[in-house]
Every structure is written in C-alpha cells, then in structure tokens.
Amino acid sequence: MDSQQAKGIAPSEGSPGAKGTVHMTDERCKGCSYCVVFCPTGALAMGGRINRKGYHLPELVHPDKCNGCDMCGLYCPDFAIFGVRTNRKKTDGEP
C-alpha cells in the first residue's frame, strides 16, 4: 500500500498564492499526458522524473497556476493524479 501512497508533487505550503495543488501516485502513472494537455490553467508539464516502470511523470511546473479544479483527476485514466483545493493564504497587502 505504501508504494501506492499519493504524494504531493508540489509542497502544499510552498506556494501561498495558489488555490490548490495536485497529488500523484507515481506507480500508477503511464505517462499518457492527458492531465498535461487538458489542464485548464496549463500548470502541468511532462517532466524528466520517471517511475519504477520507466514512464515519464507529469510535474506541477507552475504551482501558482494550480487552482485545484481536479480536471486532471477527472481525465486521468490511471487514477494516478488528482487535484485538491487548498486554503488560499492571503499575502500581505492583499484585500
């Protein structure tokens, strides 16, 4: 079970302006890139990281663009990726 544990591929706390983030179960991904192509905000890209089977994995290259809409999770045929909304932290000076 541990090998299939979802991992946050972006630090959830790392991008204070982001409304959401994505989580990934690396071992299930087959690198079809549906999540990258159909991400409405273009926050994902295929990265250089590979999993145990040698498939290239998507990466959250623009953590600030992710709004946690879970469109990647809806398209993913392998149940490997999903988005979650995080509590957006207001930065100083923002209303």
Binding site: K30, G31, C32, Y34, Y55, G73, L74, Y75, C76, P77, D78, F79
Partner: peptide, 10 residues
Amino acid sequence: PGCGIGTSVN
C-alpha cells in the same frame, strides 16, 4: 497508456 476506459471509470 492513453486508453479511454480508465477515464470513463473515473
């Protein structure tokens, strides 16, 4: 990879 059945199950 790229098969649509998984998406429909989703």
